[in-house]
């Protein structure tokens, strides 16, 4: 393969990436137009909130608890050498609220709810359910896509809040009942060192952005999937990979904007 061929292939890949990005943006625009009509049918969103939110809750609870526990343990091992082990809660709570809460929830949400959304919509496409709806004069964008986007958008910050809360409790278990930090110190430092806007709200803003991007990718990949078993598998994989990378990339960007001087 000569240089020109390689250059041509690179150009093709770049064009293909931008073309898909354009398609995904138009797809999102079409869905957003249907959202006002959806507000009259809240039951559609509530049903999806159960599927994307409630059914992801168990994995969030378990993961949150363990992450909090590990954080506390690692913090203790480092801080004890400096006699600063009382600051465990500060490290656990700030790490969870600023970074690990939204990021870990985003990654878990992409793996659990994102992949399920892609698979469900892809299967609806391959079994002609979406075409069937269109032929019944029912807009699948409004009835299928929009409720899922809205539900994911609402579920992510709630799940993140749960993850943070359970993580702090997990940290409390290890710090207070595991390594013997005084309970009053754990809670008072956590309260003292956490700023509602800088730490908690910034974390929640991150989770809203992540939630939106994950469901957008998941729903688009399902809608755009090749209607074969192989195509569906590839679309599901793409959802997990792309949304995980998007979460990590956006996290850096948002952190730089929120906590840095960029």
């Amino acid at each position: 393969m000569n240089v020109l061929d390689k250059l041509q292939k690179l150009g093709q890949s770049v064009i293909s990436v931008f073309s898909r990005l354009g398609q995904a943006t138009l797809f999102l625009y079409e869905i957003l137009l249907t959202i006002p009509g959806l507000l009259l049918r809240p039951s559609l969103v509530i049903k999806q909130l159960y599927t994307t939110g409630v059914q992801t809750l168990v994995i969030i609870l378990v993961a949150g608890c363990f992450v909090g526990m590990v954080l506390a343990l690692q913090a203790y091992y480092v801080l004890v050498d400096f006699g600063a082990e009382d600051s465990i809660s500060q490290m656990v709570v700030l790490t969870l609220m600023r970074e690990l809460g939204p990021v870990m929830t985003g990654l878990l949400f992409a793996g659990r709810a994102g992949s399920a959304l892609t698979a469900e919509i892809g299967l609806m496409k391959s079994t002609e359910q979406l075409s069937g709806m269109e032929m019944m004069a029912i807009d699948p964008m409004q009835r299928v896509m929009a409720p899922r986007i809205l539900a994911g958008f609402l579920a992510m910050p709630l799940l993140t809040a749960v993850f943070m809360a359970v993580g702090v409790l997990g940290g409390y278990l290890v710090a207070v009942h595991g390594v013997g930090i005084f309970e009053g110190v754990y809670w008072s430092l956590a309260q003292l060192k956490v700023d509602f806007y800088t730490d908690l709200m910034n974390g929640m803003i991150k989770s809203v952005v992540f939630g939106f991007v994950i469901v957008w990718i998941a729903v688009f990949e399902g809608y755009d999937s090749v209607p074969t078993s192989e195509g569906l598998g590839q679309a599901t994989t793409r959802t997990v990979v792309h949304s995980s990378l998007a979460v990590l990339g956006l996290d850096f960007l948002l952190t730089a904007i929120m906590f840095g001087d960029i």
Partner: peptide
């Protein structure tokens, strides 16, 4: 078009029932 489709019925090969 959606108004017109209300006057058309279609039976898909797979049935296309909502599962």
């Amino acid at each position: 078009l959606y108004q017109l489709r209300k006057r058309m019925g279609m039976l898909f090969q797979s049935g296309a029932l909502l599962t």
